[in-house]
């Protein structure tokens, strides 16, 4: 097991109240699997990724355990975390345009991590950065390494982000919406690249794009209002979804008619009582409004959080 997350809660104290962005999550990720985390915007996906990396503001309350290769990351010191970030666990942040430093050469932004973690000198690290750009199929990489982010297209910036994340050969990768905002052709290329480059690595793929998840993931979890509502192997999710939210999400796939889930995702400060999805659920009954359902194993390896789960 590469990573085991248990009872994880990430809460932000704000003037309006406590934002319970992750509340509560349990999941395990195996050594070479790609685990898809899917959910609507604002349900806490990015916060989960940043919690694992310990990149949130110190005022954030984080509870639970994140065991990575036997070590609880939540108890690691900041110095220890700095040796883990980028070298052991890498995150490919959402939004390449704002996540690349506009006044630093792209090659240097890759090379600095290599220098830090692999102890290479400036010249060798720069050469390695060019290799990385080549590996993510950026044409004329040695010239591109000396260019700045604004000289790259959206798809090319995403490739740079991937190169940056994978530069130090981490064993675990968190990829946050790596295909967001890309057109279909470019998206397909990025998916292909991700598949190839993360072949023998564990990856947590955050996306709200089911078609991308279907291409890349071994298992998929659906996240709703800070918690997982269903997770199963890929086939289970696509062929026998159990949770109404999952079914709603599948219905929003292009080939199924792009039907959006009605209603809005709830505020993370005040969750609805009972099942958090009940105000939007057509199957909601009395018990749904009253009792918060537990995540239960419905079929082998197929977990769901719903009072009326059915296949």
């Amino acid at each position: 097991m590469m990573m085991r997350i248990s009872d994880l809660k990430t809460h932000f104290p704000t003037p309006d109240g406590i934002v319970r962005a992750v509340d509560t999550i349990d999941l395990s990720i195996r050594d070479t699997e790609t685990f898809g985390l899917i959910g609507e915007t604002g349900c806490g996906k990015t916060v989960l990724g940043l919690t694992i990396m310990r990149l949130l503001h110190p005022a954030t309350t984080v509870e639970g355990e994140i065991i990575y290769k036997g070590q609880n990351l939540l108890e690691a010191s900041e110095a220890e975390m700095r040796t883990i970030r980028g070298r052991e666990i890498a995150i490919i942040l959402q939004n390449p345009t704002t996540s690349l430093n506009p006044v630093m050469k792209v090659g240097e932004q890759i090379a600095e991590a290599i220098r830090l973690h692999q102890g290479l000198n400036k010249k060798d690290a720069a050469a390695k950065a060019v290799e990385m750009l080549d590996a993510v199929r950026i044409p004329s990489p040695s010239q591109r390494a000396n260019e700045y982010p604004h000289e790259f297209s959206g798809g090319m910036k995403q490739r740079v982000m991937i190169a940056m994340g994978l530069a130090c050969n981490p064993s675990f990768i968190i990829a946050d919406e790596p295909t967001k905002g890309l057109d279909v052709t470019i998206k397909a290329q990025i998916v292909e690249l991700m598949r190839e480059m993360t072949e023998r690595k564990a990856m947590l793929l955050i996306t709200h794009d089911l078609s991308v998840a279907r291409e890349l993931c071994d298992r998929i979890a659906l996240m709703y209002a800070g918690e997982l509502v269903e997770y199963a192997p890929l086939k289970g999710i696509f062929e026998s979804p159990l949770h109404p939210y999952t079914r709603g999400f599948l219905g929003s796939l292009p080939e199924r008619g792009l039907v959006p889930i009605p209603g809005m995702s709830p505020s993370l400060i005040d969750f609805p009582d009972g099942c958090r999805f009940h105000p939007r659920c057509e199957h909601a009954t009395e018990v749904c409004r009253r009792e918060h359902p537990e995540l239960v194993e419905f079929n082998a390896g197929h977990f769901v959080r719903c009072h009326h789960a059915r296949s």
């Binding site: 883990i84 980028g86 942040l93 600095e112």
Partner: peptide, 21 residues
Amino acid sequence: ADYILSARAKGLSERYIMNRH
């Protein structure tokens, strides 16, 4: 800014991030 988060995610030290980014 996001690119500062990016730099932290690489494991760079705060001083380095301050000076270089």
